[in-house]
Design a protein around this nucleic acid. Structure first.
Lengths: 96, 96
DNA sequence: GACGGATGACCAAGGCTGAGCTGATAGAGG
DNA sequence: CCTCTATCAGCTCAGCCTTGGTCATCCGTC
């Protein structure tokens, strides 16, 4: 599902202009990005939370050449799913 | 940052009603959840992608008692950050 | 606006899985 | 049309993930 399809679906659901939906979705992503830049956590309860994770430096490896290389410590964006999402994606094999 | 603050900020940016923003954000999350339930991937380029990840069954451990326990295989929601996000959360040490 | 219900964070310790390294290409999205 | 992402290889270690109770907080209702 692409952003266009998502916007299509949302505009249908909410009966709002696709332009507005697109605008809002874009702004939401901008805001989340901004918050993460500031190191803030974004909580979309009960959907999940966006947060930044510190990654320590480690020894990686070039999968093509097999050469060892140093991966510097970095900050990566992470998403922690909420209960709603975790439950939703579970296969209906086991119904709780 | 909570959902309310996010909506506040987005409504300010887009100059749209807070009610509409809230409605749309909610619908977006619903759509993403639905797509993930179907096993689809949701691409919010260049922000990132939501996808489901298969987790193999493994032997866990009760951190309280130390007892071993079997963790059944499961499907978990995951978020893969896009280039924009990955770059954004990096410390401004290196400005591109 | 205030309260209640619900959800998330937190913590313990330890083991193993999965992410992620490069980079070129192909395909698709904006 | 340009940019972005997925994909793939093999290998390694670090981060995560488990339970469960409690506390804070967030959302929604009244």
């Amino acid at each position: 599902m692409t952003k266009a399809e998502l916007i299509e679906e949302v505009s249908t659901k909410t009966e709002l202009k696709r332009r507005d939906v697109s605008d809002i979705v874009d702004s939401v992503l901008e805001c989340v990005k901004g918050a993460l830049q500031k190191g803030d956590k974004v909580q979309l309860i009960p959907f999940g939370s966006f947060e930044v994770r510190k990654r320590k430096a480690r020894e990686g490896r070039n999968p093509k050449t097999g050469e060892k290389l140093m991966i510097s410590a970095r900050t990566v964006p992470a998403f922690h799913p909420g209960k709603d999402l975790r439950d939703a994606v579970q296969k209906p094999v086991k119904k709780k």
